[in-house]
């Protein structure tokens, strides 16, 4: 398959993720949509690594994987802390940093 097809799939997934971040209200789903966008970037990185025939893009994809795992951990910790303080799990109502 041509590399261009993979890039098209990557662009489509990134777009879907961005639209999800814009439309959904639950921070849990927004985190999931961020994952979608990071995965789309990963797919593009790996497609380019295959295109050039070296491993640098794959290493970059692994680092992105690590950063995504960190982001999920901290984000879910924030959501648990919000839940514990009886704050609404809704980004429309969470408009101030000081809860």
């Amino acid at each position: 398959m041509d590399i261009g097809w993979y890039l098209a799939v990557s662009a489509l997934i990134f777009t879907i993720g961005a639209a999800g971040v814009l439309t959904r209200r639950s921070p849990l789903v927004i985190l999931l949509c961020l994952e979608l966008m990071l995965n789309a970037a990963n797919l593009a990185l790996i497609a380019f690594a295959r295109m050039h025939g070296n491993h640098d893009g794959q290493i970059f994809a692994i680092v992105v994987l690590v950063v995504a795992a960190c982001e999920v951990t901290v984000g879910l910790g924030v959501i648990v802390a919000m839940h514990r303080r009886r704050l609404p799990i809704d980004v429309d109502e969470m408009q101030e940093l000081q809860g």
């Binding site: 890039l7 814009l22 025939g53």
Partner: peptide, 24 residues
């Protein structure tokens, strides 16, 4: 979203990379 998809497609597929239409 549609604008973003168009922009990404133009940016990647129209980049003039020679190997993009091959299997790598």
């Amino acid at each position: 979203g549609a604008a973003l998809f168009l922009e990404l497609s133009v940016a990647t597929l129209g980049s003039g990379l020679q190997l993009i239409d091959s299997g790598g």
